[in-house]
Design a protein around this nucleic acid. Structure first.
Ligand SMILES: [Mn+2]
Ligand SMILES: [Mn+2]
Ligand SMILES: [Mn+2]
Ligand SMILES: [Mn+2]
Lengths: 146, 146
DNA sequence: CGGAAAGTGTAGCTACGACTACAATTCAGG
DNA sequence: CCTGAATTGTAGTCGTAGCTACACTTTCCG
């Protein structure tokens, strides 16, 4: 019943390290979808509609890029849209947006709690949020409650 | 002397949000270079050489992928290598590796300090480390010292 | 109500990072 | 020393995410 060690000579074991890097790569591929979902939900809630141009302006990309990525979200069952109408989220898309939003808040709160200035916390959270596992998230919550 | 507001109706202001997303995108494009630099430095220190196959195994990618990315590091002045010899780091590459390594450690330490279990901390740090600004890093250090 | 402006969509390009398949080189055992 | 295994390198393909340029709708005003 002995498992292989997780580290040798300072370095983690090969399979362990490969798994970690692999998960990080996966997270990066979902990061964009998550940001789009969150932003679309925010726009729908605050403006009432999510137009490709608005999405593009918010993200700081060209409208062509935004439209292409929305097409990917549609392919993945997260969004819907019809030509010259705004973008909407499917149930799956809304669920994702909700999860992402709460994660975003939690990460910002944790950063603030350990003394990170507001603007840096907001900035860094935008990237960090996509790499925080559920286990870590739970630890953040527990820490913040105390 | 009045600056434009950073938020309106819950959402950050357009230019603010666009800047944040843009920085996150940049961070993601440098993340891979950072991990390669850190790993090559570790291999050089612990094994004495950094072979493409070893790099590939550690990262969990094919050797072809590793070789191509090393080529990019060379193009960017971070690494050197000659056919069928191992990979080495330039001064710039070593400097990057050192910075990345200390950041990695700090992020893990911070996560552990707020109660994240060891393996989750290691896993998540691998992604988070690329999105932690100097300001946040300084805050982490200060928090850990107390 | 008819344009012009704004918004939307498409085409075609680049760069990156991943892969497989195959070619070339190095290196160890016999 | 020579030959086969391991390593290294290269070619070609895919998907994602950017961009600009251009075409097509919609919408808003005069
Ligand atoms: Mn984000
Ligand atoms: Mn976010
Ligand atoms: Mn990393
Ligand atoms: Mn790292």
């Amino acid at each position: 019943m002995s498992r292989p060690p997780e580290t040798t000579a300072g370095l983690p074991t090969e399979p362990t390290q490969a798994r970690r890097f692999g998960k990080t790569r996966t997270a990066q591929s979902t990061a964009i979808a998550e940001d789009y979902a969150e932003l679309i939900a925010d726009l729908l809630a605050s403006v009432g509609e999510a137009r490709p141009t608005d999405i593009a302006r918010r993200l700081g990309v060209s409208h062509a890029t935004a439209i292409k990525t929305v097409a990917r979200l549609k392919r993945e069952g997260l969004a819907t849209s019809r030509p010259y109408r705004g973008v909407f989220l499917t149930e799956a898309g809304e669920a994702l947006a909700a999860r992402v939003k709460s994660r975003h808040r939690l990460v910002v709160d944790l950063l603030r709690a350990v003394g990170v200035p507001a603007e840096a916390a907001e900035q860094d959270a935008e990237g960090i949020e996509h790499h925080v596992s559920d286990v870590t998230l739970a630890a953040f919550e527990k820490y913040l409650r105390k």
